[in-house]
Amino acid sequence: MKRINTPLTKREIERLNVGEEVLLSGVIYTARDQVHKRLAEAIHKNKKTAIDLKGRIIYYCGPTPKPKGKIIGSCGPTTSLRMDEFTPVLLKKGILAMIGKGRRSKAIIQAIKKYKAIYFLTYAGCGALLSKYIQKATKVAYKNLGPEAIYKLEVRDFPLIVGIDTKGRSIYD
């Protein structure tokens, strides 16, 4: 199976096709509903975002608290559709890839094509299994949001399926 590493380049993701399975190693950042709302607000007000978004991979995930002796708790993907409202402005700010579960709106498919970004799926409802691919987890921003804080995750061979490729082809079509 194909292995990819961060930082991902545009050229690299352009070579990935819808439906293809890949293993990702490197750094990704969690962000879900409340963080998306806040990042979008900051961008609209021309303020600095809590993390630099350029070239980043965003993972739609709010993990369970870290049990003693573990790196992270359960950490599967949440429903991507809820982020659609905020995704175009994040893409404009340079995010390269998103990881989540389920469908995206037509507008997002178009935006992904326009910005030559990529949308990955990962095993839905398998948070315990996915925790095994995380090597380090640090809360880096919006810590007051609890599970919705931004976590910086270092992953190794994190399993992904290309859900929407840079050409705007969706696995659900």
Partner: peptide, 8 residues
């Protein structure tokens, strides 16, 4: 491992 089946 007494881990949550799902993070939700």
């Amino acid at each position: 491992e007494k881990l949550a089946i799902c993070q939700d």
